[in-house]
Design a protein around this nucleic acid. Structure first.
Length: 614
RNA sequence: GCGGCUGUAGCUCAGCGGAAUAGAGCAUCGGUCUUCGGAACCGAGGGUCGGGGGUUCGAAUCCCUCCAGCCGCACCA
C-alpha cells in the first residue's frame, strides 16, 4: 500500500544513486591517468610516498612497524616511530634511528636527519615538489583518490517534521550530513540520502482536522508560505482547549492508520506542502537533498509487522508492562533494571524504535547498504545504540556493515543555553539565514561594492551560507556549539567568508591577466620561503581530505583549508605575481592556480560555494 | 543512582592512535601600505591544558580518583 507522495517518491527513486550536487565534481572523475607505463595509475600523495618508503625500512626491523609520520615545524615532515621501535627492540633510539636512515630509500624525495631522542626530520627535495605539484596541476581531483571498492552508503540526515517549521536544531544534521554526503560521492561511493521526516503519529489527527476546519485551499495557502509553526500551534491550541476537536482528532488518527482514502488524501496534502517547503529551505541552504530523498517514517508502516515477526521468531520480543519490548544486554534504567527498546506500545501503536529498526532492516536487505550513517544529535546516542544492538541480535545488521550514529552537539545561544529567541521559541532556520544574508549584504554595501542589487543579493546569499555552514562544520561535531552570528559573519579570521575571500583574490589575479594562461610551462624552484610554505600546504590536501573523510569529521578539512588560505595570503603579500617575469611568473601563477582549485574543491566538498569575486 | 559528553589563553576553538618550545581566530598592544582586492600581512603580550594520583625515557593526550557543567535513562520522536 502506498500512502502518499513520500512513499511513492521513495520507491520511484532508483535505490542505487540519487542526487548529484550542483557543484559536486562527480563529473570530474578523472584522476585515474594513464601513466608512462601505459597502465592506469592514480597519483600518490606526498605523505603516502614518504610513508611507503619509511614503512619498508621500519618493517625490515619490526614487521608492521608504523613510522608515525606527521607534518612538522622542524622539517617538512617528521617520523616519530623510532622510539617505539627502539623499545620493542631493546636498543638505543638513536642507534635505531641511524639504522632506519641507513635502510630507508628516500633518494630524490627527501633528506633525512636524526634529531633529539630519535626523531627523523624529513625535508622534501625540490624535485619531489616539482613532480607532485605537476601531478596536481594535471589532475582535476588534485590528488584525491577514487575508491577502488565502491560502497553503498545510506546517509540519514536532516529529518524535519511535517507541518513543523525547520529550526536551528535541523541545521547541524542538514549541514554536516550534506558535507559527508558530498565527500562520499566524491570519493566514488554510491550515496543513498535518506531524509527520515516525521510524517506519522498521533499529531496528524489534529493537524488533519485543523486543515479541514481551515478549508483545504486556505490551509494550503497557509502552509505554502512556510508558516508551518502557526498552523501547528493553532491545531495544538484547539486540541488542548476543545474537547470535541480532541475527539475528532482521535477518530482521525484511527482513520489514518486504517488507511481511509479520504484521510490519506488529506494527510498527503500536509506532507506534500511540507516537503515542498523543505525543498525551499534546502535550496536556500544550498544543500543537495531533494524531495526524492524524503523517505519518512510512514514509509516503514508496511514493514513493521515483519519486524515484529522477525523479533518473535528470534525469541527476542518480550511483553513488559503491556508493551512489546526487546531487552538488549548492557542497558539499564535508573533503577538498574534492564532497559527495554519498546517496539510496540501498550496501545499496539508503533513508536520510533520500531521505525528505526525497520529502516535498518530495509537499508541492509533491500538497499544492500555497506554503511549506514545517522546524522542525529548526541542526546539520541543511547537510542541508537539500542537500535543497532537489537538489529544485530535480530540478524538484520551483519558485522560487515558499518553502522554509525554520527552524533553532534546542541546548538547553544551566546548565553550557552539552548538557542532560543527572546520569547523562548525555537529559532526558525529561514529567519536565521535571512538575518545572515542581511548582514552579508550590509557588509557588501559598507565596502562600496560595485555590484548591482541582483548580483549583490546573490553574493550576499553565498557569503551568508558560507558563514553559517563553515561555523557549524569547523568545530568538532560532538561538542555543543555556540551560535554567534556576529562572529561567523565577521568575515575575519577562521570563517567561511575569509576562505571565499582568499579564493576571490586569486581569481582576481587571473582576471587581470587578461589572456588565457596555461600551466604547462610552469616549473617549481620555490626560492622564496612563502612559495615553499604554500607548496607544502598544497601537497597536504589528500591527507586532510582523507582524515576528515575517514573520521567523519569535516572540521579537519576546514582546518586544512584555513591553514592553506593563510599560507596563500602570506605568499600573496611576499610574492608579487603579475609583476614578476618569465619562469618566476609562471611558477607563481601555477601556485595561485593550484591554491584556487584546492580552495574551490575543498569548499565544494563541504557544501560551500567559492564565488569568483566578492 | 547508572551511562554518555564536556572542562586547553579574557572570549570562541584546534591539538587527545603519547614525543622535542601546547597552537589558531577574536579581542588587546605595536608595526607594514605610491605595487596583483587592507575582508590583508608581520610581530608582541597572554595558558599550573578543571584538581590530585598513576603508567612511561616522555602525558593536554593513556589509566584511576575527585570537582564543575550539560545530556540521556519504559510506551514522545
Amino acid at each position: 500500500m502506498c500512502f502518499g507522495s513520500q512513499n511513492c517518491l521513495g520507491r520511484e527513486r532508483s535505490y542505487t544513486y540519487s542526487a548529484v550536487s550542483r557543484d559536486c565534481p562527480r563529473s570530474r572523475r578523472g584522476s585515474d591517468r594513464v601513466g608512462r607505463s601505459g597502465r592506469l595509475e592514480s597519483m600518490t600523495s606526498t605523505y603516502d610516498l614518504l610513508n611507503q618508503r619509511l614503512s619498508v625500512a621500519f618493517d625490515s626491523l619490526v614487521p608492521g612497524a608504523d613510522p608515525v609520520l606527521r607534518p612538522s615545524d622542524r622539517g617538512d615532515y617528521q617520523a616519530n616511530g623510532v622510539m617505539a621501535l627502539a623499545k620493542q627492540l631493546g636498543r638505543a633510539p638513536r642507534e635505531v634511528a641511524d639504522d632506519v636512515v641507513a635502510r630507508v630509500n628516500l633518494e630524490g624525495i627527501a633528506r633525512v636527519e636524526v634529531a633529539g631522542p630519535g626523531f627523523l626530520n624529513l625535508t622534501l627535495t625540490p624535485g619531489v615538489f616539482g613532480r607532485q605539484l605537476r601531478g596536481m596541476l594535471d589532475d582535476p581531483r588534485l590528488g584525491l583518490p577514487v575508491t577502488t571498492t565502491v560502497k553503498t552508503v545510506v546517509i540519514d540526515y536532516s529529518a524535519p517534521n511535517v507541518a513543523k517549521e525547520m529550526h536551528v536544531g535541523h541545521l547541524r544534521s542538514t549541514v554536516i550530513g550534506d558535507a559527508l554526503a558530498r565527500m562520499y560521492r566524491f570519493a566514488g561511493h554510491t550515496v543513498v540520502a535518506r531524509n527520515h521526516v516525521g510524517d506519522w503519529g498521533t499529531p496528524f489527527g489534529m493537524l488533519i482536522e485543523h486543515l479541514l476546519d481551515l478549508g483545504e485551499d486556505e490551509a494550503i495557502a497557509s502552509l505554502s508560505i512556510g508558516d508551518l509553526d502557526s498552523f501547528y500551534r493553532s491545531a495544538r491550541v484547539k486540541f488542548d482547549a476543545d474537547d470535541a476537536f480532541k475527539e475528532r482528532s482521535r477518530a482521525r488518527v484511527v482513520a489514518l492508520q486504517a488507511g481511509d482514502p479520504e484521510t490519506s488524501r488529506l494527510w498527503k496534502i500536509l506532507v506534500d506542502q511540507s516537503v515542498a517547503y523543505f525543498a525551499e529551505v534546502y535550496a536556500k541552504l544550498d544543500v543537495t537533498l531533494t524531495p526524492g530523498d524524503v523517505v519518512g517514517e510512514s514509509f516503514y508502516n508496511d514493514m513493521l509487522d515483519d519486524v515484529v515477526a522477525d523479533l518473535v521468531r528470534a525469541g527476542l520480543l518480550v511483553e513488559s508492562g503491556g508493551a512489546r519490548c526487546v531487552f538488549p544486554p548492557g542497558f539499564a534504567n535508573r533503577d538498574g533494571e534492564p532497559l527495554p527498546l519498546i517496539v510496540q506500545k501498550g496501545d499496539e501503536g508503533f513508536g520510533y524504535a520500531a521505525t528505526d529498526l525497520a529502516a535498518v532492516r530495509d537499508r541492509v536487505s533491500n538497499l544492500h547498504a555497506d554503511e549506514l550513517l545517522y546524522f542525529v544529535g548526541v542526546p539520541q546516542a543511547q537510542h541508537f545504540e539500542m537500535v543497532f544492538a537489537v538489529a544485530r541480535l535480530a540478524g538484520w545488521l551483519p558485522d560487515s556493515v558499518r553502522c554509525e550514529h554520527v552524533a553532534f552537539g546542541n546548538v547553544l545561544g551566546p548565553d550557552r543555553k539552548m538557542f532560543k529567541t527572546r520569547g523562548g521559541e525555537t529559532v526558525k532556520l529561514v529567519a536565521l539565514l535571512d538575518e545572515a544574508i542581511e548582514r552579508a549584504d550590509a557588509a557588501l554595501v559598507g565596502r562600496g561594492t560595485e555590484l548591482d542589487p541582483t548580483e549583490r543579493s546573490i553574493l550576499a546569499t553565498q557569503i551568508a551560507r558560507a558563514a553559517v555552514k563553515y561555523a557549524d562544520l569547523s568545530t568538532d561535531r560532538e561538542r555543543d556549539y555556540i551560535f554567534d552570528l556576529d562572529r561567523m559573519i565577521a568575515f575575519e579570521g577562521d570563517t567561511g567568508p575569509y576562505l571565499q575571500y582568499a579564493h576571490a583574490r586569486i581569481r582576481s589575479i587571473f582576471r587581470r591577466l587578461g589572456e588565457p594562461w596555461r600551466s604547462d610551462a610552469a616549473t617549481f624552484a620555490l626560492a622564496n620561503d612563502a612559495e615553499r610554505d604554500l607548496a607544502l600546504g598544497l601537497l597536504a590536501f589528500p591527507e586532510a581530505f582523507e582524515a576528515a573523510f575517514r573520521t567523519l569529521q569535516p572540521h579537519r578539512l576546514c582546518g586544512y583549508l584555513f591553514d592553506l588560505a593563510q599560507r596563500f595570503t602570506s605568499f600573496y603579500e611576499a610574492c608579487p605575481v603579475l609583476s614578476s617575469k618569465g619562469a618566476l611568473r609562471d611558477e607563481r601563477l601555477a601556485l595561485c592556480e593550484l591554491t584556487s582549485r584546492t580552495l574551490h574543491l575543498g569548499l565544494s566538498l563541504l557544501g560551500i560555494e567559492a564565488p569568483e569575486q566578492m
